[in-house]
C-alpha cells in the first residue's frame, strides 16, 4: 500500500527558504504569488492490511523520523 507524507514547517515557525523563494518570484514579476511555504514529500511503500493501518504506520514513522515534531508538522495521504 502506498502512502504519501507531506512535511512542512509548523505555521508559526519561520520558513526562510519559502520567504526567499517568494521574494524571488515577486522580483520576477509573479505578484500573484502571495506566500510560499517549502516542505518535503515522501512516498512510502507499506506492508499494511488496510488503509487505516497504513495511515497509522505512516503517521508513526512521520512522528519518529520524517518530521521533526519540534518545528515541523505533517499530513498523510493513503491510496
Amino acid at each position: 500500500m502506498k502512502a504519501r507524507v507531506f512535511v512542512t514547517l509548523k505555521p508559526s515557525v519561520f520558513d526562510p527558504q519559502g520567504q526567499t523563494i517568494a521574494d524571488a518570484l515577486h522580483s520576477m514579476g509573479y505578484d500573484g504569488v502571495q506566500d510560499v511555504r517549502q516542505g518535503k514529500y515522501f512516498e512510502l511503500d507499506l506492508d499494511a492490511a488496510t488503509p487505516d493501518a497504513a495511515r497509522v504506520l505512516a503517521g508513526e514513522v512521520a512522528d519518529k523520523l520524517l518530521a521533526n515534531p519540534v518545528i515541523e508538522s505533517y499530513r498523510v495521504e493513503v491510496d
Binding site: L9, K10, F14, P16, P69, V70
Partner: peptide, 12 residues
C-alpha cells in the same frame, strides 16, 4: 515550550 524554537536564516 517548543514553540519558542527560533529558526536561523544565514542568508538573511
Amino acid at each position: 515550550k517548543r514553540p519558542a524554537v527560533q529558526v536561523g536564516d544565514p542568508f538573511m
